[in-house]
Computed example of a mutant assay.
Amino acid sequence: MNQETADPDTQLGSPIRNFSVLLSPTPRGARLGRLLATEQLRTWGIPLEAASHVVAELAANAATHGRTSGRDFRLTLYVVGDTLRIEVTDTRGDHLPVLNPHPPSEQEDGRGLLLVEALADRWGVTPGPPPRKTVWAELSARPTHHP
């Protein structure tokens, strides 16, 4: 589920950290993903606020828009150097996320990617083997302490 390795190519031998979990494509699975990610980031000493919001939005999108009955989505966190990469892979590669910079004010949803855009240094979508896609975001992640 989670792993730490020392990569000789990283500066000063900083470990590469990763965490990955399969979750049900439901609101409960999305909440569990946010909670698990928050606890993992806390153990790594990574600042939580922006990262937990990005995880929550990407996981909620996977549970809402990437949902396929009987197929889980995967949440993966990587820390390499000072960069945290959050990936959410679902099985709706035919349904790509669209950033709507001006959602109607009366519309209750459609603002999640605006939040991701505001909090992440960069984000995007990578097609996977059919029928998958991965929505990812990268944030600066200078640890608050070294575990």
Results as ranks from 00 to 15, higher is better:
Val116Asp: 03
Asp72Tyr: 05
Thr5Ile: 15
Pro47Asn: 04
Ala59Leu: 03
Ala60Arg: 10
Asp7Trp: 11
Leu48Asn: 02
Val135Arg: 00
Ala62Tyr: 05
Thr83Tyr: 09
Leu41Pro: 05
Asp90Gly: 04
Ala56His: 01
Arg31Phe: 02
Thr134Pro: 00
Val135Cys: 05
Ser20Gly: 11
Tyr78Gln: 11
Arg111Tyr: 09
Val125Arg: 01
Arg28Asp: 11
His145Glu: 13
Leu48His: 03
Thr76His: 14
Gly93Arg: 08
Arg31Tyr: 07
Glu138Gln: 04
Gly81Lys: 13
Ala51Met: 03
Asn100Ile: 06
Glu49Val: 06
Ala141Glu: 13
Gln40Phe: 08
Gln11Leu: 15
Ala60Gly: 06
Arg132Trp: 09
Thr144Gly: 15
Pro129Tyr: 01
His146Trp: 13
Gly110Ile: 03
Leu119Lys: 00
Glu138Val: 02
Gln11Glu: 15
Glu106Pro: 01
Val88Ile: 09
Glu87Ala: 07
Tyr78His: 15
Leu115Asn: 02
Val98Gly: 04
Ala141Gln: 06
Val80Met: 11
Glu117Gly: 00
Lys133Ile: 09
Arg34His: 07
Asp7Asn: 14
Leu22Asp: 09
Leu75Cys: 06
Asp90Lys: 00
Val21Trp: 14
Leu99Met: 04
Leu23Asp: 08
Val116Met: 01
Leu32Gln: 14
Ala51Lys: 01
Asp90Asn: 12
Tyr78Met: 12
Pro129Asp: 15
Lys133Gly: 02
Leu115Met: 04
Gln3Ala: 11
Leu36Lys: 00
Thr134Trp: 06
Val135Glu: 00
Ala118Ser: 08
Pro47Val: 03
Pro101Trp: 08
Lys133Arg: 15
Ala141Asn: 06
Arg71Lys: 15
Pro101Ser: 04
Ser52Gly: 08
Leu36Asp: 03
Arg67Cys: 04
His102Ala: 14
Gly124Lys: 00
Val54Tyr: 05
Thr126Met: 06
Ser14Asn: 12
Arg132Thr: 14
Glu106Ser: 15
Asp109His: 11
His95Cys: 08
Asn100Gln: 13
Arg74Thr: 10
Ile16Tyr: 09
Arg85Phe: 02
